[in-house]
Write a protein that binds this DNA or RNA. Sequence first.
DNA 1: CCGCTTCCGTTCGATATCGTACAATAAGTC
DNA 2: GACTTATTGTACGATATCGAACGGAAGCGG
Lengths: 238, 238
Amino acid sequence: MALLEGIRLPENRLLRSLPPEDLEALLPRLVAVDLPLRMLLHEAGEPITHVYFVQEGVVSQIAQLEDGQEVEVGLIDRTGLVGYAVALGGRTSTTEAVVQGQGHALRLTADAMRAEMARGGALVAVLLRFVLSMNTQMSQVAACNARHGLGERLARWLLMMHDRVRSDQMPVTHEFMALMLGVRRSGVTLAVGALERAGAIAHSRGSVTVLDRGRLEAASCDCYAVIRRADEELAGPA
Amino acid sequence: MALLEGIRLPENRLLRSLPPEDLEALLPRLVAVDLPLRMLLHEAGEPITHVYFVQEGVVSQIAQLEDGQEVEVGLIDRTGLVGYAVALGGRTSTTEAVVQGQGHALRLTADAMRAEMARGGALVAVLLRFVLSMNTQMSQVAACNARHGLGERLARWLLMMHDRVRSDQMPVTHEFMALMLGVRRSGVTLAVGALERAGAIAHSRGSVTVLDRGRLEAASCDCYAVIRRADEELAGPA
DNA sequence: CCGCTTCCGTTCGATATCGTACAATAAGTC
DNA sequence: GACTTATTGTACGATATCGAACGGAAGCGG
């Protein structure tokens, strides 16, 4: 019954904000799944077979460039849905979704998702508010990538991750952060060192720990604040 | 009656793809407006009062950074809707929308838009497909901004513009392209010169003319192709 | 035709980031 | 504890882009 209870009061904010009748319609079709680190939830260009209401953990939305280069364009956590392209009528996505911070989710087949949306309850509106917040996140990241330096962007990324995992310690390597930001690994090593000297973070092999959010925010560009505000608006009203 | 006829068979692809009954419900509320160059359709952070079904011309979606810096994050033409955040349940946007290539549009108040969407016809699905295509565009631009050089990005931008205006000649200054790409003006001057020497474009004061799309595509990154494909999928099916 | 303004071409040195490489260290694995 | 691998620190020159500046050219308003 613990599991059932977990489903009845899901951690996922989208599900939580549904009125009881909509949630109950959805419940029988939701399947609890683990999200182990690095799990690929959908691939670029391939059909999206399932969507994931994230309960805990973080998932990266990653765009692919030529030569297999990858750059992160968005982060999804328990306030969101992985595979939201389905909610917009898509069957594939040009991005892939990878588990970044382990956790678990409630999974739904894409077909069931389409069916539930067609039922015409509150689900659609809830999903669309989330799509709006992702839209804001992506547009700000696009601008940030164009204008801001590595140090600022790294600080922004760490803050975004820190908001989305519930721990000060994050299991990431320099290599990995470099991949997410689309920069050189040794550039990240330098930037991490600078943030550490500034007292904002500590780090050890494969791990970064946030020590002082204030200093991290000072090192970041305003893009973080814009994205944060979008998240709060999603959570806040109605 | 020419005007009425223009409304009955609108150039806007979203309106065109509506079944007759949905379109007729919308018609009485649509107001034809000109889109002169540089017109501001909505401002960052301010309420969106109207949405615009673009009939002709191009509108930039522009993100703002600190110090009033601006970077373009998306382009909207007659296949789209300016102010689509309203369709997602938002009342404001963190971006602003500026007319980039002059034209005209059918305007609707945001309230009327919400009312029409609540009526539950085909409108919502049509809008959401468009939102998906913008989502693809923005994510690809975000990645492109992170990894690609000025020359490739300029070529991409010119191609995107060229698809969206219906002329080979585009009224843009170097200064303006620099603003859109988030780079230095004289950097654009150099890149324009390189494209000209490659025979891809010609330019004169305040104007760029596309001479050879093939060469322009060769100078661009694959990001253009990804965005183009998203546009075609929006136009293509259903 | 003249002057003003906008736009463009070009230059300078400065800086950020790149790509590559290699060594040093930490964390498993047997 | 020896071996192996992943991760990090650091260095190098190369390159792209920056910010700022200046002069020339094109077009406009009178």
